[in-house]
């Protein structure tokens, strides 16, 4: 068998295994929390009899392992259960919310990833000169400021003072793409500023590392200009570390947007999760946890696979 196929299938198998582990962990942790769904529904003042009845009704008296496998089977089949608080089907609500979150993440990624790589290349080209220093200073500043602060500052100046965009990022299905994009402009800017620095710094470091190598000297002695040397000879050999950090940041765009969604009141997964955590709606929290884990594991698996594919020694064995 081609070694690539073997390595990639190993990664896939490992990813699936990891996902099961994560689901068990999430389930186990919510189990370990004091109180349960019945308690949450009935509140502090519930009588023991009422609690016992509700537990019986919800099947909470059965062993945790049985309930875990029931829940897991449901999830594999796309059934995430019903919400305790609004009795809606979770899969349906999540589907809508997840779509919104991915929409936001997609546009943030579309802007931030190419921008970060471009800025990284520019920083290498003008290493230790003012463009490099300026790029580093600006991106490090934006990553150092908490995102909610950037968010509120942007809302104040751009939305309130200048009135260019709406301070609230409310979107719904009846809006056109243009309207939606205008609505999410500010959160996209905030997210871009948060993830830019990591990716830019890693691009810069990975390429600088490759620039020390003898084949870059060979390229220089072929009379190539600096951008061609970086683009043709350094970049292809720096892909693996760059992809890894890009994927981590993409995962962050999906999983870590909670704060930004709350600031802009954006109807995404983060808001949904926060809402239901406060209401102790355990099935929703579980579903969100598994989805986040799946996205995280999936994107990191993609990073691993791209790293494998980027290695010419593995792609073209002797």
């Amino acid at each position: 068998m081609h070694p690539i196929i073997k390595l990639v299938s190993q990664r896939l198998a490992l990813g699936i295994l990891l996902l099961f582990g994560a689901s068990a962990l999430i389930f186990g942790l919510t189990e370990a929390l004091p109180g349960d769904a019945a308690q949450a529904v009935l509140g502090q003042s519930a009588t023991p009899e009422a609690l016992a009845n509700l537990r019986e009704e919800m099947g909470l008296n059965r062993p945790a392992l049985t309930r875990y496998f029931e829940w897991l089977t449901g999830i594999v089949q796309g059934d995430m259960g019903t919400s305790l608080t609004n009795k809606l089907d979770i899969a349906e609500s999540v589907g809508n919310r997840l779509g919104n979150t991915l929409f936001l993440a997609f546009w943030a990624a579309l802007i931030s990833v190419p921008l970060a790589i471009f800025l990284g290349l520019v920083a290498v080209r003008y290493r230790n000169r003012w463009p490099d220093k300026l790029i580093s200073a600006v991106t490090l500043t934006t990553i150092s400021i908490p995102e909610f602060l950037i968010g509120y500052v942007l809302v104040y100046f751009i939305a309130v003072k200048l009135g260019w965009f709406s301070p609230l990022a409310m979107i719904n299905d009846s809006m056109s793409l243009g309207q939606k994009l205008s609505a999410i402009a500010l959160p996209v800017v905030v997210l871009t500023m948060v993830v830019l620095a990591h990716m830019m710094r890693m691009t810069r470091a990975a390429i600088l590392n490759v620039m020390q190598s003898a084949y870059v000297e060979t390229a220089e002695l072929k009379g190539l200009n600096n951008f061609k040397i970086i683009w043709r000879h350094a970049f292809p050999n720096a892909i693996a570390p760059i992809v890894n950090v890009v994927m981590l940041n993409l995962a962050y765009l999906v999983v870590g947007v909670v704060v930004v969604e709350v600031v802009f009141i954006y109807p995404g997964m983060g808001q949904y999760l926060v809402d239901h955590v406060t209401k102790r709606d355990v099935p929703v929290v579980l579903a969100c946890g598994v989805i986040f884990a799946a996205i995280y594991i999936g994107l990191n698996m993609v990073a691993d696979i791209v790293s494998i594919l980027a290695n010419p020694r593995l792609r073209h064995p002797k």
Binding site: S213, A214, Y215, E217, T218, A219, E220, L221, K222, G223, L224, H233, P236, N237, A310, P312, R313
Partner: peptide, 19 residues
């Protein structure tokens, strides 16, 4: 460079781009 004057290095293994 690369036109009128060219260069052969000691370690071709390091001087060729592996990718």
């Amino acid at each position: 460079r690369g036109g009128e004057v060219t260069y052969v290095s000691q370690s071709a293994a390091a001087s060729f781009n592996p990718a």
